[in-house]
Design a protein around this nucleic acid. Sequence first.
RNA 1: UCUUCAGUAGCUCAGUCGGUUAGAGCAUCUGACUGUUAAUCAGAGGGUCGUUGGUUCAAGUCCAACCUGAAGAGCCA
Length: 465
Amino acid sequence: METMKRTKVVDAFDASLYGTKINVKGWVRTRRGNKHVNFIALNDGSTIKNIQVVVDLSKFTEAEMKPITTGACISVVGVLVESQGKGQQAEIQAESIELYGGADPESYPLQKKGHTLEFLREIAHLRPRTNTFGAVLRIRHNLAYAIHKYFNDRGFFYLNTPLITASDCEGAGAMFQVTTLDLNNVPRTDDGAVDYSADFFGKPTSLTVSGQLEGELGAMSLGAIYTFGPTFRAENSNTPRHLAEFWMVEPEVAFNEIEENMDLAEDFLKYLVRYALDHCQDDLEFLCQMYDKELIDRLKFVVENDFVRLPYTEGIKILEESGHKFEYPVYWGADLQSEHERFLVEEHFKKPVILTDYPKEIKAFYMKLNDDGKTVRAMDVLFPRIGEIIGGSQREENYEKLLSRIEELNIPMKDMWWYLDTRRFGTAPHSGFGLGFERLLLFVTGMTNIRDVIPFPRTPKNAEF
RNA sequence: UCUUCAGUAGCUCAGUCGGUUAGAGCAUCUGACUGUUAAUCAGAGGGUCGUUGGUUCAAGUCCAACCUGAAGAGCCA
């Protein structure tokens, strides 16, 4: 087989290449035909499109063709031509084919017919070879890149916050413990407790549930930072919106007040959705056609319309006066349930809503108290179909007020002196928020289960791949 | 974790009132077909009916527990 430079499938639809000999490599999606001519649909992951390889069987032996089945990996050299058949622009007239690896058709689990998403979750190691997961994972990459680009272009610095933390009060749910102790022979102190002084860090440690507290340190020195990394929640949540390991984006900006925080969140979300529309057209069209006919219209709607900004108190009033029957009661001071959020976003306003100024009792200790003494400068961005996509706030910058909230809530702060130091030394107003990357991907791809927008989902009782 | 639904061929499903040999489509294999488009046509092979226990002359079917999956809820991003 002659050696020549490989052409990616995504680049093989260039009409200026017609008539030239090229080399493509990829995995066989289907092969069909008769005893004179075969057609191979070849995909290399560079695009959702397959390139059609036309094989004149008089030029190839039966032994050469037999292992070219769905799932096999081959390298093809041939002349790229405008397709003689309908259904594709270009095709390759095969001159030589090298088999890299066959795929026994009796045991290869992916067929050319459709599979359910549930079945594909059981073969997560192979599902990126499907159109759907190829599309989702290409969109995921593009949005990850867009996040870095957005912040970089605006002077934010990418801050790497720790994944292993010794603080047990990040305030966002159950944590996975990290230890090198022998669990079959745990060292004990005299009173029978686990002796963590013998552990790797000399104290109990966990996987982080949020980079926010360290992010605030970054904001109070570099001015504007963002984190983008994995976070871990040991909650026993079994829903289509929760993962035990997920990726979170957390910008934190010194001197931003809550209004500027909202401006940033809205502009950021619109930028990301616009980026996907501009750069992932083929993949979005596929997902739109196969799963959700209104997907692209909904994405455009979000980009083109202002988000509603609504104080919690007014939201409660709308819900109370709606006449709508809710399973959970609505009253001032109640945390909003999914049904309440959905009513506001999907039925009342019919567009994204930023809900602000929640009662302090239902929000985290670090949020800035309003002058009314009852509400805090929190903001949740609520999206249609997926609910809360962003949660954020202006942070309490006053040392005494922060300390009294910590005491009110009995938060163990013995390991958090470093966080309080930001308020002791050169404190300043600052704000930030957290965006669940997979929640964003649910919205942008139209997928309905969060396990289908991350390559290797981690959920209770599932860490197979 | 709670509620509901589901588990039958490699995949997607049907299986009546509990009844004697377990059904289809697709996939796979064999053959046919001179440009296919999830190709088409003909034939063949393929089953511990999630697991365990129970009721019954008889269980894929009824009962219980457990396992697994999904949807809704809670928690949250």
